[in-house]
Design a protein around this nucleic acid. Structure first.
Lengths: 223, 223
DNA sequence: GAAAATCTTGACTGTTTGATAAAACTCTAA
DNA sequence: TTAGAGTTTTATCAAACAGTCAAGATTTTC
């Protein structure tokens, strides 16, 4: 038996399958109960595996958590990475919002895991946030500032703009339970996300102040 | 000794003081670790009290949690209750957003407790959400619709509008750790909230599309 | 097909956790 | 000032929990 942890070696078929199965189960549990609230037994049961067997692949609870976090942050920041200064600002932002919304729809467990970690004060990923997230945001802030200086979008605090995109989109994953209570069962999950996309587009582009309809009508700002 | 739980009777000085102290400590712990992740020992220590002593006041862990949730929801919905159809829509909405933001600033632990509960699928308050939150939202949706029909605000999905106000404001409490990493220590907590308020005002009123500056300039919608 | 490597399991350990019992102590009202 | 209600502590318990161990079962490799 070789020490799996120390060497970088190729994994067996069974190893790959089981690790996948375990991480999926772990995501399910961690994303709901957080690190402390989750138990290895719960995860093992969800993975259809005995606890010692699970611990053969991940020797400590923390190892599973860290594996999940590591793979998460990369995926999570992907949409922001793609935001660049070459295209037109409004379509570019719209597309960023749409992608973030799609991620909330397609990876709600990942979103909740992330939310849980931050809620707890990000004890395990604060470093990562500082070394990876912050520089990326700083870079994109410059892109936004460029657009503002050129008068292509309204001048606002770029960081808070990013926060508002994150919060409004992730809300549909993290607060899904509440969203479902309020929207009722009328429209399915798909419809909900279409509605959300349409709404957010209007909000971010035009806000709530009534728009002057049709071409030449003057826009009166102060009523 | 009388059974405290069954009768409604007046509480001792010590009882009131200690229950307050316990609930404050419990809020501190539950809001970070969620129900499952929190331990009675942690709470007892934060309250400066032995565990059996704490359990003299709240016989089960769940009793503390429920006491917190009960007092929370009422406070939480107060700002929405005050939103009514008598004032002008834009100042009215602006004031709602400001109040929600103040709550995120002044009661971040309550916000996190709520977030934690919803993340877990709201197992303990789903009923309450259906019986209290939903009707209130339905009522306010009608107010919003009225404003839209009268052309006083843009026509958007009113429920998603409410979601976006909730998510953007609560973000500053729930994701405070991340916000701090990104904004850096430059501006203190007060400054952060001022910036957020200013930004959200612009977002919700005007959106990001560049505004026509000055009075009579025509607004070109399609570029 | 046998040896070697990998995988799985049952039994177990020490610790943490939620909760209880009963005795000892403190406060308060008559 | 003392009886009794109210409060706190010490001691304790059973269940849940993270993690270990060694032996047995299975798969891979030569």
């Amino acid at each position: 038996m070789k020490a799996r942890a120390t060497e970088t070696q190729r994994k067996t078929r069974i190893q790959m399958e089981n690790e996948e199965r375990i991480l999926d189960a772990a995501l399910e549990v961690f994303s709901v109960h957080g690190f402390r609230g989750a138990t290895i037994d719960q995860i093992a049961e969800k993975a259809g595996m005995s606890k010692p067997n699970l611990l053969y692949y991940f020797r400590r609870k923390q190892d599973m958590y860290e594996a999940l976090i590591a793979r998460l942050l990369d995926t999570w920041l992907e949409p922001l990475r793609e935001l660049d200064g070459v295209g037109d600002p409004l379509p570019e932002l719209q597309s960023y919002i749409r992608r973030k919304l799609e991620m909330a729809r397609d990876f709600p467990r990942e979103s909740r895991l992330f939310a849980n970690e931050i809620l707890q004060g990000a004890p395990r990923i604060k470093r990562l946030l500082e070394s990876e997230l912050k520089p990326l945001v700083d870079e994109k802030v410059e892109v936004l500032r460029g657009w503002m200086k050129a008068g292509q979008i309204n001048s606002v605090d770029p960081r808070h703009l990013i926060f508002s995109i994150w919060s409004t989109t992730q809300h549909y994953a993290d607060f899904d339970t509440q969203v479902q209570v309020i929207l009722g069962p009328d429209r399915g999950a798909v419809g909900r996300f279409e509605d959300a996309a349409r709404y957010l587009e209007t909000l971010f582009l035009d806000g709530l102040r009534p728009q002057a309809k049709g071409g030449g009508t003057p826009r009166v700002r102060d009523v």
